[in-house]
Design a protein around this nucleic acid. Structure first.
Lengths: 225, 225
DNA sequence: ATTCGCGTTGAACAAGTGTTTAGCGTATGA
DNA sequence: TCATACGCTAAACACTTGTTCAACGCGAAT
């Protein structure tokens, strides 16, 4: 999608360079001068186009958000997350910059991160609704909370990808740690848990349910991980 | 544990101030001057004690790591994560700084973050082993991968706590987003998934298993979220 | 042809950064 | 008692940071 380099407006080239650096180094570590240098322009021009570093960041936020939003709507139409993942695996280098940028947005507190997270939760909720109607997903009482849990679990791969590939000894990890090897190794374990559960029976569930229903004041005996 | 303020060495006071600021603002945003001011000393003294800002960070890493390590060993002896969570809920303010620090360590690439993640994975692995022997956890083939998945899912609450409490509308969120209300709302959904699964049958699992076994080259049809 | 507007640069500025240095006071040991 | 070491500060230094400003080139409109 991002064509080689020169057919873009200078303005757009600056923005793309900023997205790359903001994602790689974080907003505060990445300097205006570095962005300008990567885009092949002078620092002054960056400010001239975007007013300030904060303005540049806002433009990057909007751009990444818009791009991922269209991708999300295009490809995940009827609960088929698989196609999106497959598409990512076929050409991962195309998305690494955006993935890194989103990871930074989610960690650092930013409106764009908030919006992205909410979008993922809503998408999960839609998928769950559709899955329940189609009979592929169990019927849950509190769909919203389930969606939040699923979204959080899924995004953990994005947030912790580096650590995951590191502890699993991925021989050729992507820049974000999320490569084919990682997904191949984690797919079956995750699906096993999502299919047959993690605990062998409902003891913990019942205990927690009773504790939470009986003692609603404060120190309910939670259990997890 | 951290007593009011003044009975600590100045050196320790500087370190604790740094832990607080590094966790709240991140390593690069937190300045030596801010640390010094919070500790009530001059900027020069910070350098005098720790050599450089990087040295200060290393001391903070070691301290937080050591503290969480002893806590992990003390309280999670036989698979009882519940006690640790309960202890956190009873006095959350005691751990918020360390939690924030660890979250930053996991996001920003640092040796301390690596070590912490590995420790969590190993602890999960021990818990799973014990649970399988005790019959409370299902018997898995690839325990290591299961442990990584469980660790990743658990840490996602830490990494995304702010977003979780935000989308769930937590009325009184902790600084890290992880408060009693959040855990109360997420415990049952999580335990339901961990007990009865997320999908209603093994269709997805079987499909993925066949795809991964049959086509081991590259474009295996993964599925998730 | 001249003027206007705009994209662009290079140098400079002001503020903030980590770090250094000289020196102060004070407790401790010879 | 004196000297030494140590905790500590204030000021300064060198450098990076985001941002500003005057000027330049050049295409388009008048």
């Amino acid at each position: 999608m991002r064509s080689s380099a020169d057919d873009l407006t200078t303005r757009a080239r600056i923005r793309d360079a900023a997205i790359g650096l903001f994602g790689r180094d974080g907003f505060s570590r990445a300097t205006v001068r570095a962005v300008a240098s990567l885009a092949g322009v002078s620092p002054g021009l960056v400010i001239h186009h975007y007013g300030s570093k904060a303005g540049l960041r806002e433009a990057c936020d909007q751009h990444v958000l818009a791009q991922t939003a269209t991708q999300g709507r295009e490809k995940a139409d009827p609960g088929s997350t698989g196609r999106l993942i497959q598409d990512y695996l076929n050409n991962p280098d195309q998305y690494t910059e955006e993935i890194a940028y989103i990871r930074r947005s989610l960690g650092d507190e930013s409106d764009a991160g908030d919006a992205f997270f909410d979008a993922v939760v809503n998408q999960c909720q839609d998928i769950i609704h559709a899955g329940i109607e189609a009979g592929t997903i169990r019927k849950f009482d509190d769909i919203r909370s389930i969606a939040v849990v699923i979204a959080s679990n899924s995004l953990s791969i994005l947030m912790l990808g580096r650590h995951l590939s590191r502890t699993l000894g991925d021989p050729a990890p992507e820049p974000n740690g999320i490569g084919p090897d990682l997904l191949r190794q984690l797919t079956l374990p995750l699906l096993e848990i999502y299919t047959h559960g993690f605990y062998s029976d409902a003891r913990f569930l019942h205990a927690a349910r009773e504790a939470l229903e009986g003692n609603n004041t404060n120190n309910g005996r939670e259990h997890a991980p």
